[in-house]
């Protein structure tokens, strides 16, 4: 329960669990405590070294670019202060792309979680034969690369687009053929469908893992008490899954807010920015216009957009955590 562990709950084994901690009393001088934990520091060193060098430093390194007008060549020299941020904040296409990203997340996350949970409940049934086989089936799309998915979906659409159209026309559902990716709403729908298809597997296994941690005896006990499946689900499964569920929701939102590859390969943000999400918006700034008109990349503006969006997301995440916490508190209060 990683993410939850970062919340105020106390660390796993304060004092005296691992060999290294050799339990120096909490008031021991800092040097003693540091020396006692020397192996802990050594073990964490590779992670920190990699993280600081290749993740944290580059993020702050690119923060510098946000204050320059710079095309990515040589070193930045044209200092513009906060102009880039101002320009982003005033760009209606940026805000549209934020809206599209939120639409994507707000549709994908709940739909996917409901399907994943339902599937997990079915597959977790010990009496169901071949459940490992089914699990494999539904997880498989996760291993595909977006580039290949993009090619395959485009080929399928261009091959089936006409077929579907003639079915729909014959059934009098539509009266003119649909241009699947040419209609921003339908295009977004297709991106959402493919997004659900490709990432459902992760959430399925997270839920399965969560369900496995519920001891069978508890369900058994509930059944003996005469609780029906619905009540068992609501009063046992849901509360027991709450912490893992929280992690899944947070991860699903983090992933959805960073959606990029699928949009890039399926619509490239088009038509007329109708499916532009924040990451394609940033990409188009950083790597220069579109293919019809090669334009100068604007790395400064792209970095500014990226940081601005990062701030929005952090704000949103804090809000999300606060909401979950207040719900949890209210529940606890209600129960107590």
């Amino acid at each position: 329960m990683p993410l939850v562990d970062t919340a105020p709950s106390p660390p796993a084994h304060r004092g005296g669990s691992g060999p290294a901690t050799a339990a120096p009393p909490p008031k021991a001088p800092l040097r003693t405590r540091l020396w006692a934990a020397r192996w802990s520091y050594l073990y964490i060193l590779p992670l920190l070294a990699l993280l600081l060098t290749f993740v944290v430093y580059p993020i702050f390194g690119s923060l510098v670019y946000t204050f320059y007008r710079w095309n990515g060549i040589g070193e930045p020299s044209d200092f513009v202060g906060l102009d880039n941020f101002r320009q982003i904040a005033h760009d209606s296409i940026f805000w549209d792309s934020v809206a599209h990203t939120f639409v994507y997340a707000i549709v994908v996350v709940p739909v996917q979680l409901v399907i994943a949970l339902a599937l997990a409940l079915v597959l977790n049934n010990k009496k169901l034969r071949f459940s490992a086989f089914y699990r494999t089936l539904f997880f498989l799309p996760v291993v595909t690369s977006p580039a290949v998915v993009g090619v395959v979906v485009q080929l399928m659409l261009s091959n089936f687009g006409d077929t579907f159209n003639s079915w729909l026309l014959d059934a009098h559902i539509i009266d003119t053929p649909v241009d699947w990716l040419g209609n921003p709403r339908i295009a977004m729908g297709i991106i959402i469908l493919v997004g659900i298809w490709q990432t459902l597997g992760y959430n399925l296994v997270y839920f399965l893992a969560g369900l496995q941690t519920i001891p069978e005896e508890i369900n058994e006990a509930a059944r003996i008490d005469g609780a029906g499946p619905v009540r068992t689900f609501l009063h046992i499964t849901v509360p027991m899954l709450r912490s893992v569920g929280l992690m899944i929701v947070i991860l699903a939102f983090i992933g959805s807010f960073q959606v990029f590859d699928l949009v890039q390969v399926l619509t490239n943000g088009g038509p007329y920015f109708g499916t532009e999400v924040v990451n394609t918006y940033i990409y188009h700034l950083a790597f220069g216009g579109n293919q019809a008109a090669a334009t100068q990349p604007d790395v400064g503006l792209a970095s500014a957009a990226s940081f601005f969006y990062g701030l929005l997301l952090i704000g949103f995440s804090v809000l999300q955590v606060l909401i979950f916490r207040s719900i949890a508190k209210r529940r606890a209060a209600g129960r107590g």
Binding site: Q154, L155, L157, S158, G161, D162, N165, T176, P177, V178, D179, W180, L181, G182, N183, G270, P271
Partner: peptide
């Protein structure tokens, strides 16, 4: 209706 209906969906290659 003179234009191929999926013109915005397909790429130049298709």
């Amino acid at each position: 209706g003179y234009i191929y209906p999926s013109a915005m969906s397909i790429g130049d290659e298709q």
